[in-house]
Design a protein around this nucleic acid. Structure first.
Length: 256
DNA sequence: ATGGCTAACATGGTTAGA
């Protein structure tokens, strides 16, 4: 079973690339972030034509998340229960017995800003949600754009980024808390090349120079992590015409 | 050099992303 995550940065613009990538690199399930479109614009027919089931939770202009899967989606949940949040950033579903939560963690803009405060509060809400989900679902994967680089090796120039948003201690602590609760960063279960990132700024030739961050993650519960047999970033779509600034990340599990 | 690019909304220039 292959589970992927991809921040498409506008599903309207990126639909052709999504279709191409899913055709070339079939996965069993994928979490998409930053749809940037209202629910009524979701390309349901085109996704159906790919042979995929889907659930989506969008909004105009900003945010928006979706799950696509080969098998039907069961027990779809929208947002974090009990957390009133006008920003649509979370969707969950069960696929072939695996619980999949797809998240678009707030950017945070700058340390100390209102958006940073919101990001940290949002992460606290996510921690509680995840603790509950882990208790209910032994086979749990939480994929998405975390907007946090877990460690300095996930940052192209740690000295330049030190203390700033995406790497600050409070953000990394929040992510570490998720891992302590019983999740594994599947990417780090395996030997990886240096400079493996999942996002590169559109500016400054950042992709060409590999000036990136690894902020898109596939986290897995113990039971699922034990069956994980690989995880990689697929940089190819970042080389295509009019790319998303994020690349897809794919984890493979030894499950039917 | 604190910008550089891209997308949405708008239909020029602002907001947001990371």
């Amino acid at each position: 079973m292959k589970i992927a995550t991809w921040n498409v940065n506008s599903l309207r613009v990126r639909l052709p690339q999504l279709k191409q990538w899913l055709t070339e690199s079939p996965v069993d399930a994928i979490g998409l972030q930053e749809l940037k479109q209202p629910d009524e614009d979701f390309p349901a027919e085109e996704i159906d034509a790919l042979g995929l089931h889907a659930a989506w939770y969008g909004q105009k202009t900003y945010n928006g998340v979706a799950i696509l899967a080969r098998q039907p989606l069961e027990d779809v949940e929208y947002g974090i229960p009990g957390f009133e949040d006008p920003q649509r950033r979370v969707i969950a579903a069960t696929i072939a017995g695996v619980r999949l939560i797809n998240v678009y963690v707030p950017n945070g803009q700058a340390v100390g800003s209102d958006k940073y405060v919101y990001k940290l509060e949002w992460l606290r809400q996510l921690q509680a949600y995840v603790a509950d989900a882990l208790a209910r679902h032994p086979q749990l994967a939480i994929v998405g754009d975390y907007n946090i680089a877990p460690e300095d090796r996930d940052v192209h120039d740690p000295a330049k980024w030190e203390g700033s948003v995406h790497v600050s201690a409070a953000e990394r602590d929040a992510l570490a808390e998720l891992l302590r609760a019983g999740l594994t960063d599947t990417f780090r279960q395996f030997e990886q090349p240096d400079g493996a990132y999942s996002w590169w700024d559109y500016r400054m030739g950042a992709f060409r120079r590999n000036h990136g961050l690894r902020i898109d993650l596939v986290l897995a519960s113990r039971e699922l992590a034990d069956r994980c047999i690989g995880c990689h970033v697929d940089r190819r779509p970042r080389t295509w015409e009019r790319p998303s600034d994020h690349a897809p990340v794919v984890a493979t599990f030894d499950i039917a």
